[in-house]
Design a protein around this nucleic acid. Structure first.
Lengths: 192, 192
DNA sequence: CCTAACTCTTAATCTAGATTAAGATTTTTT
DNA sequence: AAAAAATCTTAATCTAGATTAAGAGTTAGG
């Protein structure tokens, strides 16, 4: 089960058995049922979560009660409220499970201690964070420059697996449109 | 002149004189006149730039020829096309100077070699990247959840110094609205 | 110092996407 | 298996912000 995490890490750095042990000794397994929360608004995100099976979303509830989704995450991905996790202050994001989910958690405290003991892990997380930043930037550019229909087409190309797994309601909240308008777009796409 | 960079770094990690030397021996000073490019679309971003004086912007030109600004950067900030810089593949961003500017450049190659020689620097850039990711996420949330007038108010609060320095045309391209609409918003704000 | 090139504003018209509402399906709970 | 809750669709109406156009103010280069 931890093998998925080790494999993910070993795409970027090589680990000795001792280093594997160092890592695994600080990971905490956790299960969430569908709709259970990992983090709620106002919490300090003590942990970053690596997903073994299942699917989570991180989202923000605006002053009108609308949800806006920052990230979907499935097997082999990390998710947390980065702002709260890095600062260890209360965050504004919620993270909950869209399916029954198995996670490995690592606390910020243990993570930083691990970096001190073994800088290789700092490299791994530096790379993960760089990649996350790039995909965030790409998404911001899409939101600034493309109409909703193009953003949806990009989404279907980039994340074809999500289409089967994630309700349209959620996809609309990720794209920044209403479910009604997404429905209209999909109808329109069938015609051409 | 390099003192600004050393101070910035020493907010996050402590450096020995030798480490300072290691860093400075790979930085390349560069000057740009207003309107000169650091990077153009299609280039590989060989360098990340730390700003000593002046102001730059990174932006994307969409298929209709409209510019969308990802980042403004002034003294004491880093800027690059992260996608291209980390992958060393051609990028889609332009970076140019809004004012006469002095920079210190570091190549991706030298940066990665520095990380190997001295993991402390990996820590520094991991922190910088984490912070960048957080502010990108915050901006994405603002774009998803707030109307233009609120985004402008947030901008004025977060970057009061930019208001004097950066033309409204550019600020509009950052907020994701037309300059005409920004003008309307500003007029509207005077009334209350 | 003058002209060309930006920059900002105002206003009329237009459109992508929101809102509201209602009905049809599907999923979940009891 | 029935009832309740969530999901998706369609359609009419509405609005935030775009587009177009024109003029005024400001900056910069020759």
């Amino acid at each position: 089960m931890s093998q998925l995490l080790l494999n993910n890490i070993q795409k970027h750095i090589q680990l000795t058995d001792e280093e594997k042990y160092m890592l695994l000794s600080i990971t905490i397994p956790k299960k969430l049922k569908k709709r259970q929360f990992l983090i709620q608004e106002g919490d300090v995100s003590k942990y970053s979560a690596f997903i073994i099976t299942g699917c989570l979303r991180s989202y923000f509830v605006d002053s009108n009660g609308f949800e806006h989704i920052l990230q979907f995450a499935i097997e082999d991905w990390w998710i947390t409220d980065m702002m709260s996790y890095t600062s260890q202050k209360p965050g504004r994001l919620n993270i909950d499970a869209l399916e029954d989910t198995e996670l490995l958690l690592i606390s910020r405290e243990d993570q930083l201690a691990l970096f001190e003991k073994c800088p290789k892990f700092e490299k791994y997380f530096r790379i993960i964070t760089e990649n996350g930043m790039v995909s965030n930037q790409q998404r911001l550019l899409d939101n600034l420059s493309l109409p909703a229909i193009e953003r949806y087409k990009n989404f279907t190309k980039k994340y074809p697996l999500f289409l089967q797994r994630i309700p349209q309601l959620q996809i609309a909240a990720y794209l920044g449109i209403t479910p009604e308008f997404l429905s209209k777009i999909r109808h329109q796409m069938l015609k051409d």
